[in-house]
Design a protein around this nucleic acid. Sequence first.
DNA 1: ATGTTTAATCTTTTT
DNA 2: GATTAAACAT
Length: 677
Amino acid sequence: MAELSRKLRKELNESQIEAVSALDGPLLVLAGAGTGKTRVITYRIANMVANGISPGKILGLTFTNKAAREMRERLATIVPPDAAGKVFLGTFHSFCARFLRRHASLKGYGKDFTIADDTDQSGIIRQVFSDLEIRKDIVNPQACQYYISKVKSEMSKPEDLAFRDTAMAEAFPKVFKRYNQTLFNQNMLDFDDLLLVTVRILMDNPDVLERQRSERTRLLVDEYQDTNYLQFRLLELLAGEEKHICVVGDDDQSIYGWRGARIENILNFATTFNGAKTIKLERNYRSTNTILEASNAVIAKNADRHEKKLWSELGEGEPIKIIVADNAEKEAELLADLVVDALAGRERLDYNDIAVLYRSNHLSRLVEEYFRFARIPYRLVGAKSFYDRKEIRDAVAYLKIIVNKRDDQSLLRILGVPPRGLGDKAIEKLRETKERTKEPLTDILADPLFQSSISAAGAAGARTFAETVRRFRHEFADAEARGGLADTVRRYLEDVGYLDGLARIHKNTDEYLKRRDNVLELVNAISEHEAKEGKPVPLLEFLEAHSLSDDNDKVKEEKEAGNAVTLMTVHAAKGLEFPMVMVIGMEEGTFPNEKAKMADALDEERRLFYVAMTRAKRKLVLTRAKERMHRGTYLRREPSSFLADIPKSTIAETDARNAFEKVDADALRKAFENFTI
DNA sequence: ATGTTTAATCTTTTT
DNA sequence: GATTAAACAT
């Protein structure tokens, strides 16, 4: 066993030391909520470096950029900067994207491939449906999108899916094939492709695999419980014969099963990676023992799990509050009161110390309303992010066609934004020509022969457009050498007529100015990105960073901004902590979610609740409403079955009595009042 | 070809 | 109950 420096030793508890010291061979670290997971990973890297392992050999994979960034920041404080810089710390997707920039040609992709996001995917599927004459009232295109991802992440074949729906069974293999052809022809990869193509290249090219293995010999994986089959295969390939792989995770916090995460990966790690050592971290540094006792009891109801019991030295703390409101409006009102009380209380909590968590996004609406009324500052996390706005997506599409001229998806998106004389007729003609020549749409647009086949106005529009794009491909190439990406982007968006076009699209001046400001804000973000890099940033690089950045990345910046209560889904809260946490909508059908229950995912719902509870450091409040508006009508809501799993001893006495009470006379009368109107 | 109105779809979570 | 696509009118 490697010798651990005294400095590191002082900062860690016994099991953490064990996890940090066991450098060779496969290692599973079961890190319960709040047990210092990030600390273990970063100190482990520091210990590797201290023991003479070259930092350039270390590969750390995470799920979010935020996690990667946090680790990099922490690492910078404990190892010399030049060493820290050589460690690869990034997401699975960014690692694969980087790998593919070097090797994607082995599978026939161009070096300038772009990444297809959600909207690109559904756009392509819509196109495929129309090409294959599949009716979307018979086959659900969204389900197709889900199945495409499933097939890829499980490395199976479309025929292998056992559909009960015969129309889907018939259509899906064709859709799958055509979808992939379209992506490939457009030199695009979707998120799953990034991983899948990487794995295929490693499998089919022993020399590449060998080189990759010798390049990075030490693997660290964060949030291992969230890995899917594809990621498991990737790790298996990368780990090689030596298997110097350390995975850190918590099976109790596996909440992404619905998008392919396989909890089996972490449950079976010790057997799949033969001879793996397992270390449990159970000492929690976050919450009071009351909160931990309740959380332990809730999660203990799940069957397949690594047994863990969290404890802390932070004392008993306050009992958990369970509050019942007559209806969802009253619940929201109550939350506002609780916030005000918390700020006035002797603990002197601040808005920043409080989070409101909910199962699904729409539950935030009433809370927002009442917080606004009560003048409580709040920040809404996740809902519709800046980058999801239409004008930003359009601007990005304008940029994508510069980098990847085969990106028909982006071209079609912005062709008529703003209107330039190219409408349905012109698009029909474009498709026709494409069918014949297989040329990229940007090239067809520039072709005089094509232009002469459409209206004069359209031809003029196509000519100016194609000319501007052609000119700026050169300008961007210059910017890549000399710098000034942000400025080039701004001039491009102006010259191509997009910025001014916004005025024509939105005749409401305020609306126009707002959208224009947003686009300029994007330019600003590029400018900041450049400043941070300190060297010229190629457009391709910015677009890739943009595609692979997640919502949580944007959270952090906002969080630093002001003092406000945080409103977010439980999923978005994973990894965060707050002195006071309020979980709302504790009703059967809401949390646990109805559809999840139907899908046989009650265990995952319970884990989700466990994640919610363990975000709280000192105060945990659970609320439910007896009635809630749902799809236009008030529905009676029963208490969540999870509430019954919380030990009575951890709940405030007055609340314990009320918590499980069903609809009372008051609510009934109210329901009748609604009827008479 | 473009602007306006109506219809439809959806609400679980998103790298 | 809100956003977004299709249908319709100009």
